[in-house]
Computed example of a mutant assay.
Amino acid sequence: MLDYAPRDDAQHADNGLLTLIETIEALSATRTISEVADVVRKAARRISGADGVAFVLRDNNQCWYFDEDAIGPLWKGKRFPLTACISGWAMLNRQTVVIPDIYLDDRIPHDAYRPTFVKSLVMTPVRMEDPVAAIGAYWAQEHTPSPETVQKLQVIARATASALESGRLHDSLVDARHHGTFLLQELDHRVKNTLAIVQSISRQTLRAASSPEAFAETFENRILALSKAHELLTRRAWGRAQLEEILDKALAPFSANLSDRFDIIGPALTFSAETSVSVHMTLHELAVNAAKHGALSTADGRIVIRWSVEETASPPMLTLTWREVGGPPIVGTPERKGFGSQMITRGLARDLGGKATLDFTPDGVIYTLRAPLSQRMSLAA
């Protein structure tokens, strides 16, 4: 393939991609919301070339301008109603907003902006499903950022969500010292484990990406899947999670009504918190592949998910299958195995001490997992 892009454009893309990776690695060392904000505001300004960046937290019904990095003062430390602020609009509407001229947009409180240098902006919510913050990038001249720049800001916002939640948890535990050092040690374990997963995802996704744009899209989807797994565990107070709950959360983005595309049957199973994340990520990768190449890429395709436990075996053994039907015919086995395929066949099986196979039959993909019951995975009482 010939490369017709100018050398400086390619260098700029490489620098932007490097900034994304460096941001994730920097977030892995953060422990408080202040540290997360410091990493994000600097990275967002570097990657966007903006004249200023604000990190805004949602505080009940208010926008709290928590930190900023700008050529002039913005609103650091101030709070505004969600309904009277563009960061609030982005969080309430769960979407990124690009405004080339703030004085031509009625959503902007013009009186609040006149004392500042701001003429144009991008506001990106953090955690799209249920925003907890927003990242604002501002320019002193009328400016329309490229789609690639907006996409990179959105990737930073996705990566920030997990780190921000960890920071909130750490701050609350530090304030509640009577819970003892055990909780802090448990938090450290969870944060380090989560950020190690994020680092692994970033490096492996980068290794397989064909372009910065491909990396940004794939990485964003994987981080979103990880954050959804954590949302489920947070509601469960990081206790055990039911397999059906994990299935509902992991597969919801692929069908508004799961029964329309998925046929799911099996006994009640529960997983430990860490293993629940592996289960969620495995199901996400299987569904992504099905949506791109398999049964979910056609109108009539379906996924049949079955699992059973052989209780008479010693130890009792789980057999779980994911079978795709009604999709496009499969010719041969793909020669190249990317990070997603490795996660499917190795990650969960390794966690459970079992074995997984991924077969490409003419009728569709079949994933099979065999693993012994244990404290990580057990039948529900």
Rank of each mutant, 00 (worst) to 15 (best):
I108W: 01
K337V: 12
K355W: 12
T357A: 04
G332A: 13
P212E: 04
M91G: 05
G16W: 11
M281P: 00
L243V: 09
L153G: 04
G340I: 12
S374N: 05
L169T: 13
V279P: 13
A214Q: 11
Q199A: 00
D175P: 04
S200H: 05
H170A: 05
A26S: 15
L233W: 10
D101R: 14
A216G: 02
W307I: 06
G16Q: 15
L286A: 09
L82E: 08
S202I: 07
D106L: 03
V331T: 05
R306W: 13
S34K: 13
S146E: 14
D51F: 01
G364A: 07
V279S: 10
S166T: 07
S276G: 13
L184Q: 11
V331D: 03
S210V: 05
A134G: 04
S278W: 05
K355S: 01
K78T: 08
V98N: 07
A208H: 00
D260Y: 13
R235P: 02
V97C: 09
A134T: 10
L183W: 12
A313W: 02
L2N: 07
E274F: 00
T319Y: 01
I47H: 01
T96M: 08
N289Y: 10
T205S: 05
L352S: 07
P372S: 06
D106R: 03
V191A: 02
P81K: 05
D38V: 11
F271P: 02
G136F: 08
V132G: 01
V122G: 09
R236F: 00
P372G: 07
F271T: 10
D171R: 02
E285C: 11
L183S: 09
E129P: 06
S227H: 12
E231Y: 00
F117V: 12
Q62E: 15
N221V: 00
D359C: 03
V40T: 14
D260H: 14
S278H: 11
R79A: 03
R190Q: 08
A381P: 15
V97W: 15
A381S: 05
P147S: 08
E310K: 06
E22N: 01
A134Q: 01
T23P: 01
E148P: 08
W64H: 07
H110Y: 11
H12R: 15
A291K: 15
C63L: 10
L224F: 01
H189E: 12
P362G: 07
V198T: 02
I47D: 00
I24Q: 06
E244T: 09
T357W: 02
W238P: 01
S172N: 01
R261M: 06
L286K: 11
I71T: 13
V150R: 12
